[in-house]
Design a protein around this nucleic acid. Structure first.
Length: 420
DNA sequence: AAACCGGGGGC
DNA sequence: GCCCCAGGTTT
């Protein structure tokens, strides 16, 4: 198929595309002929250069689907141990469908973007209930599953089922933006559509299982964000960005907004070998995960440049007093003496944690005068838990670290010792 | 279209 | 410190 494609325009077309894109002058011209050899070289390169990854050793759609889900916004090295642990516990989609939600969450602990796990679990149940336990191989059905967006659908359908469905992830976006010389912001849907169209043409000319992975592999190992190794690139001949010497300037991305800083005041309430913990709301940040009883106080934007860190302020004492009142089942506001009394909070630890869109500074405080006890009732969402049982709960990374620090020499909080 | 949703590794 | 990673969902 590809061998018959002519080799008429070694590099001219790519340069032209780059200039046109820079001028913002609209549609690209067809580029099938000049890229035929590029595609062939890409495929040949992949066969010899591909990394030996666990999900490349199987044809099982379930395993490939799991890998694509775990790999969303997550590095290969991070995923590998989770991938093995997950499959060890849930070898088939049916096993996953039959699992308890908390057990699925526990195996995802530390991986981030926890909605992925909830969606995958629900999707597995739908595979059983709607598709007889067989992962659907047609785009409409597979894309209907929760957590399956355009990328995941394209990736699984092409890699596991050999269909010519393009999968555009961050790697592919970068490779194609450079190869085609696209100077428009890659966020724009029009850019993604154009890249999908070119990629689909490639998929229809060669084995989709190979082409999809080849482009991604190129972006992951050669056409990397900084210092791309153009000398080793199979697409060098047709690359518009390289021809213009501007490969490091692409892709063009829009600037990100500043992170909101949040001061988190978390309480260490321990009594009778038990610890008071709190379950986060079922929706939103870190949904349904466990933490120390805490209040989150957004730091005013004016203060962000100043001492966002630092010792608890008077306002913090007041907020903690209110939380302690709630824990004690009292409805009245804490009195002046409680709030103003000195030295009633001992700071046991501080941890900073950065999310995509905000930043936490967690202070773990021990209210030395508080007399709460496991025998007394606590409001909903709070719970006394034996120290030894803490590892069974699902913790956000920052609390995992804090607990490990504060519980030493107690047992670890991780699900499995071999995870990072 | 923009905001929300984790965590980590490389520089 | 900044970037960005085999993205999806919600508003």
């Amino acid at each position: 198929m590809l061998a018959s494609v002519s080799r008429s325009h070694p590099q001219g077309v790519g340069v032209q595309l780059y200039r046109r894109a820079l001028d913002g002058s609209g549609r690209s011209m067809p580029h099938s002929e000049a890229e035929g050899d590029d595609l062939q070289r890409l495929v040949d390169w992949y066969q010899g250069a591909k990394r030996d990854l666990p999900w490349r050793r199987t044809d099982d759609p379930y395993r490939i689907w799991l890998s694509e889900t775990m790999l969303q916004q997550t590095r290969v090295e991070t995923v590998i141990p989770y991938y093995h642990a997950f499959l060890s516990r849930f070898p088939t989609v049916g096993d996953l469908a039959a699992a308890a939600p908390d057990e699925v969450a526990k195996l995802w602990q530390g991986l981030g973007y926890y909605a992925r796990a909830r969606n995958l679990h629900r999707a597995a149940q739908q595979v059983v209930s709607k598709f007889g336990g067989v992962i659907p191989s047609n785009p409409e059905d597979f894309s209907s599953l929760p957590g399956v967006g355009p990328y995941t659908a394209g990736a699984v359908l092409s890699i596991a089922f050999g269909q010519p469905t393009p999968a555009v992830d961050g790697n592919v976006l970068r490779v194609m933006a450079r190869f085609l010389g696209i100077a428009d912001p890659v966020r724009q849907p029009a850019v993604k559509r154009r890249i999908e169209a070119v990629l689909q043409a490639w998929l229809e000319q060669d084995n989709p299982r190979v082409v999809t992975q080849a482009v991604m592999e190129l972006g992951a190992t050669v056409c990397v964000p900084t210092r791309p190794d153009c000398g080793a690139c199979p697409l060098l001949a047709g690359c518009a960005a390289r021809a213009a010497g501007r490969q490091t300037e692409l892709p063009v991305k829009s600037p990100k907004p500043r992170k909101q800083k949040v001061r988190v005041l978390a309480l260490w309430c321990e009594a009778d070998g038990q610890l008071l913990v709190q379950r986060r709301p079922a929706e939103g940040l870190l949904a349904g995960m466990w933490q120390l009883p805490a209040i989150e106080m957004p730091v005013a934007s004016a203060e962000q440049g100043l001492a966002a860190a630092g010792p608890p302020a008077p306002r913090d004492d007041c907020a903690v007093a209110e939380l302690l009142a709630v824990l004690s089942g009292r409805t009245r506001q804490p009195d002046r003496a409680e709030v103003e009394s000195n030295g009633w909070l001992v700071e046991l630890a501080v941890a900073r944690h950065v999310f995509t869109h905000l930043e936490w500074e967690v202070h773990v405080l021990r209210p030395v005068a508080w007399t709460g006890h496991p025998d007394q009732p606590v409001p909903e969402t709070f719970q006394w838990v034996a120290m030894a049982d803490l590892p069974q709960l699902v913790w956000p990374r920052v609390y995992e670290r804090l607990l490990e620090q504060l519980l030493r020499p107690f047992t670890a909080v991780r699900a499995s010792a071999h995870l990072p």
